[in-house]
Design a protein around this nucleic acid. Structure first.
Lengths: 194, 194
DNA sequence: AGTAGAATATGACAATTGTTATAGCCACAG
DNA sequence: CTGTGGCTATAACAATTGTCATATTCTACT
């Protein structure tokens, strides 16, 4: 069998995503992710033979898919509902971690890989952002927004939410999220009706 | 004399800001910042007796003030001009670094300090964000925007730009910046006139 | 029961980290 | 000339890093 106990591997990935979202990419060590997932260090290199790069890449994809699932589901009730779910998702992470956790995809995006090679993790982060943008853009188009407008607005939403989460962490306050929520919601409504 | 050669100290701070903006907080070592600034390691601890925490805090403040100066100047020509300058500033950094550098303030915001103590660097990052927001909000108010609206929109602008810069790095493309620029500019114009 | 292969345990490797200590240099004051 | 103090050089420290190698346990199928 290739995977006897899938939950062990998954626990490592989810734990890595959580740790990256708190301490950043480089401060997240394989040893601590293993400890955090109650898995032995030896197992980590068994599950992820390509090492940290592979683990990080999977952690990014994991977060991306987990978020995309929620977004896809809530967008069925329209773009504003999708936005609200997106915001609520990150607000929950920020608040429940006492402003210590954020988005691991963002964290991976802003830490240059030590080597000059193109990083698989960075490419995964780009894919995740694009996926989120496309989900939002498609929903906007379904509600009558011009294709170009929809793509632009979708980018703005993703970027603003990511930036806002980081600002909340720095300020130890959810006020930035409140501000951004209000502005984005009004903007979506205006764009749909316009 | 307290400072014989001020440029040495300043070079270390500016270099630290640059390195943090590329590799993140934890991957930026004192040794390498010293090397990057052509300053000896011993000098770094001479100039920054409180160690890395102090150096990082000053790097954040340095970036904050440097950006605020540009913002303050360009905002004299109105909020849209200010936005354009703000975007151009970060676009330059992203493009000229070949998508390897971003905003050090954001980087510091998303890396939890190892200790549980409240980090001086994180507080500095919060201050910088607030400063930028206030500059934008004041300009919006001067152009007839309601105070609450102005604060909300200012938060959105800062958050969106920070998030967009990170997305550009992941995607190795300036398209996110183009999208965000278009949307934010239209939003400011609509808000002023509305 | 026996055995292949997955999973774990353990230890080592060179490299790098923040920080401190100690000694030396060099300019300028008296 | 003497020496005071800002700056530099160098070495060392314990801790941690990613990674690899090896040995051992466990699991599942024949």
């Amino acid at each position: 069998m290739t995977k006897n106990n899938p939950s062990a591997r998954d626990r490592i990935v989810a734990g890595a995503a959580d740790m990256i979202s708190r301490r950043g990419l480089n401060a997240t060590s394989i040893r601590e992710t293993a400890k955090h997932a109650r898995a032995p260090l030896g197992s980590t290199y068994h599950y992820f033979p390509e090492g940290k790069q592979q683990l990080v890449t999977e952690a990014v994809r994991f977060t991306g898919e987990w978020t995309a699932r929620s977004l896809r589901k809530e967008l069925q009730a329209g773009p504003v509902a999708g936005l609200r779910a997106f915001l609520a998702l990150w607000r929950k992470i920020v608040v429940e971690s006492d402003f210590r956790a954020g988005c691991p995809v963002l964290a991976v995006s802003i830490e240059e890989p030590p080597t000059d090679e193109t990083s698989a993790a960075l490419a995964a982060a780009a894919d995740v952002f694009t996926t989120w943008e496309n989900l939002l853009a498609d929903s906007l188009r379904e509600h009558g927004v011009e294709p170009d407008q929809a793509a632009q607005l979708a980018t703005l939403i993703v970027a603003a939410v990511e930036g806002t989460v980081a600002m909340c962490r720095a300020k130890h306050s959810t006020q930035p999220l409140d501000h951004t929520a209000e502005q984005l919601q009004a903007l979506i409504l205006a764009t749909i009706k316009g």
